[in-house]
């Protein structure tokens, strides 16, 4: 799936280094748990969780190349997509269902979200915030769809079809009666920004948002 975040690594206490926003997700995962990473790409997060947190991890990835690279690293990954292929997994099969930077590219985000919380006890979801001031600026003053380092692809080529703002997402969670266990907003490089993620500030200044949900 499309990754809208640039490839920056953070200083972590682990010998392993992964992209900053993925590290924030990894930090939410308890060791020794069962994890499904949907849209796992080349297995960066999944491999990290397997190596450093001893999780029983599985991946689902749309691109054949991604799947191949994951399996070649010994990670159990299958080809499939979030819209079509979550239905096969049994209820409660995982402790965490992770959907990183992928929700906005799904056909039916609401159904996908409810599937995440059917197969996982908790869902960890991250997405680009369309309420970010740059997006607002682009629309308001340039009169064009936002294009920035976080959303680098032109409107006619982007796989992102369901944009939302942090506030929209919180609204959907409320409508679906989902409990927001944790939430944070991230800056352009994927690092955490310390502000109340439900605030208008967060919705204005956050490049991306990261939520942990439960039912």
């Amino acid at each position: 799936m499309n990754n809208t975040v640039s490839n920056i690594t953070s200083a972590t206490p682990h010998s392993d280094r992964i992209r900053v926003d993925l590290q924030l997700i990894a930090d939410m995962v308890e060791p020794g748990t069962r994890v499904l990473d949907i849209g796992c790409s080349d297995g960066e997060l999944l491999g990290y969780l397997t190596r450093t947190k001893n999780v029983d991890g599985r991946g689902l990835e749309l691109s054949n190349e991604g799947v191949r690279n994951c399996v070649a690293q010994g990670l159990p990954v299958m080809q499939g997509d979030a819209d079509r292929d979550l239905g096969d997994y049994p209820d409660g099969a995982f402790d965490y269902a992770i959907l990183s930077q992928t929700l906005q590219a799904t056909q039916r985000p609401k159904e996908v979200l409810s599937e995440l919380l059917r197969i996982g006890n908790k869902a960890i979801v991250s997405f680009p915030n369309f309420g970010h001031w740059r997006a607002r600026f682009d629309l308001m003053f340039r009169g064009q769809m936002p294009q920035n380092p976080n959303l680098p692809i032109m409107w006619y080529e982007t796989p992102n079809i369901h944009f939302c703002t942090v506030r929209d997402f919180v609204g959907l969670c409320r409508e679906m009666n989902l409990k927001i266990e944790r939430s944070m907003v991230l800056n352009e490089s994927g690092s955490r920004v310390s502000m109340d993620s439900h605030s208008g500030f967060a919705n204005f200044f956050g490049n991306q948002a990261l939520f942990m949900l439960s039912k």
């Binding site: 029983d56 599985r58 054949n64 799947v67 191949r68 994951c70 399996v71 990670l75 159990p76 990954v77 299958m78 080809q79 499939g80 292929d85 096969d88 997994y89 049994p90 099969a93």
Partner: peptide
Amino acid sequence: SRTLAHALNAASCNVSCVEIE
């Protein structure tokens, strides 16, 4: 193969499924 892999998933098995071009 995908039907098989989906069934393995549904049985909570540890499964990779790859199509080679």
